[in-house]
Nucleic acid binder design. Structure first.
Lengths: 336, 336
DNA sequence: GCTCCGATTGTAACCGGTTACATCAAGCGC
DNA sequence: GCGCTTGATGTAACCGGTTACAATCGGAGC
């Protein structure tokens, strides 16, 4: 009723107030060992009275469990990471864990510093290192880690990835089935492994079907709307414009759409357009955008599940796991 | 070169290996107190050799500083929270802090449990509790906290908010200046304080200019695209449809746009449309969407700055701070 | 030569919990 | 009545760092 206004009280003070030992307080609060009902009652009253809250940091030190996991991402910007974090957080909460999130780590050295800072603060790690240079990351031995995205399962750590190639292949086959042969591709950032997998998956599918990808129909983008705009404008300038465009993510597809409309080109009658990611607004564009749906939150959730499995000893199952990507056909690629 | 493969080594083992005391190790690693160059050299070599990484948890216990702050959000879904987290993370990183994020806390009791679990794990908190029932949250005494959004500065904790009312007013005046008088409003979720502030700000501005908001032009939404669609369809059905629509967030405006186009109504010539948030794609819609730009990341950054100020003793300044919201006019509200 | 001082380093208490082990009393079987 | 088991609780070591205070040592000052 009148909690000490001072900073915080320790278990020993509670013990003194309840006229028992610290061990008893600890046991009552953790439901361990036999405790006399009267004692438990008294302890709980004192605890409530003093407004005592155990110091998790101290508890972690002696139990060697922090109940939290570190999440290291290349960035925390945009729809994708938002969903990813949501999935991870969801999985964490279900298991009573907390997540320590850190983003914007372009530099491997920075990631390294972060890993050190996290030592003793987390029980395990979920690391997404999309950039190529990620190979340099040194995971301290003995720490359970789950990788997201590209890095091959280094050091036997499990990894999860999105089926970028499969999704891209589905788009390619869909466009080919519609009769398209002059298909442009807007690639993502060079150092991004998702971007690369999508590009390669798409090209491979074209080739498999006997359609040679044309160099002049490959435009470099950076996954942002503006680069999609620029790409579309460049493609529209060609003497023989493509009949279809595959943007390797939705943001670029959106920029694309905006530019095509400006140019007076109609989608899909003049040019068909497909994206990747199936962001929530894809279906609300006009025309609604054909895209590839990836269960991003599920990716996060699975990652956390894998990590927790590792933490609790029950180990591996398959070392690599792939989250499926499903084609979602909408009006932007309606038949020719 | 051959770090022990075992889990982890302690400072005492390092001390033994370097033939010095633990105090010396600590001093070398933290740059405290005078250390003989030779000693420092030797210690650093041993540390590198053994791959020793200090246990942050233990350090926190004795220094009583965790270098991390808790971030409690009602949800972590969507563009808004993504940006917010980015801003917070950015501010945190600049100051060498980590962030413990937790979302999806609809229930105040849950938040309460979380606060307890975070005790001793974080130095301070950033709490966003948009839901009405948030008043029940009991912040433990002595913990620096910064609130985001609605809650009045309880217990003298500083709070930051977005200038929802101001932004909404700007939209209203813009539409009025364009000559619109029959203006529909798509409200956000009832229990959301941002939604309410936008709604009220808008209505107040209309009234101030002598335009009475009509009940039949007020549609309930939930901040999601689909509710925007539904609202637009309902409004289009009216005998006298509005000449302009203010959607209290962009997601709903996007749904709206999609429905209007489907209905064959042209924006802005048939109906003008404005949103709120200025999400990245707003400018790529067709027509580009008039919206209200909120520096969300800045909100997060400021919140962290305020919290850090509180942590370092240099206290208050104004207790409440408002992040401005600026009208961004685009084609969706071009002149009549 | 002796005292004093600063540089350097060690010792041990402490942060706030958990828990192995010890203690003590009561109940039980014989 | 005695040894043993079981229940309830206390004692103190330990988790892995930090740091106040003490100790040691070489040179400066007198």
């Amino acid at each position: 009723m009148d909690p000490k206004s001072s900073s915080s009280i320790s278990i020993r003070e509670v013990a003194a107030a309840a006229r028992v030992s610290v061990a008893t307080i600890s046991r009552v609060l953790n439901g361990k060992g036999p405790i006399h009902p009267d004692t438990r009652q008294r302890v709980l009253e004192v605890v409530a009275d003093l407004g005592y809250v155990p110091h998790s940091g101290a508890r972690s030190l002696s139990t060697r469990r922090t109940s939290s996991v570190g999440v290291i991402l290349p960035d925390v910007y945009g729809e994708f990471f938002s969903e990813l974090i949501r999935g991870i957080d969801q999985g964490a909460k279900r298991a009573g864990y907390h997540i320590l999130v850190s983003g914007s780590h372009s530099d491997p050295a920075e990631v390294d510093a972060l890993l050190r800072a996290l030592h003793g603060r987390v029980d395990g790690l979920i690391v997404m290192a999309s950039m190529r240079n990620a190979g340099a990351i040194r995971i301290p031995p003995g720490v359970p880690v789950v990788f997201l995205g590209d890095p091959p399962s280094r050091g036997g750590h499990p990894s999860l990835r999105i089926d970028n190639a499969g999704g891209a292949r589905a788009v390619a086959e869909h466009l080919l089935d519609l009769g398209h042969r002059r298909i442009a591709i807007i690639a993502g950032p060079a150092e991004n492994s998702d971007a690369e997998a999508r590009l390669e998956g798409f090209r491979a599918a074209l080739i498999r079907r006997g359609v040679e990808p044309l160099p002049e129909l490959l435009v470099q983008g950076d996954f942002r709307e503006e680069s999609g705009r620029a790409a579309a404008l460049a493609l529209a300038e060609l003497e023989t414009p493509p009949t279809a465009i595959f943007a390797t993510n939705d943001a670029m597809a959106i920029g694309c759409l905006s530019a095509l409309r400006e140019r007076g080109l109609s989608v899909p009658s003049d040019i068909a357009l497909a994206g990747f990611d199936d962001v929530p607004i894809a279906r609300y564009l006009s025309p609604p955008l054909t895209s590839v749906r990836v269960a991003i939150a599920e990716l996060g959730d699975r990652a956390m599940a894998r990590l927790l499995a590792g933490l609790e000893g029950r180990g591996a199952e398959p070392l690599e796991e792939t989250i499926p990507a499903a084609l979602v056909v909408r009006a932007s690629t309606a038949g020719l």
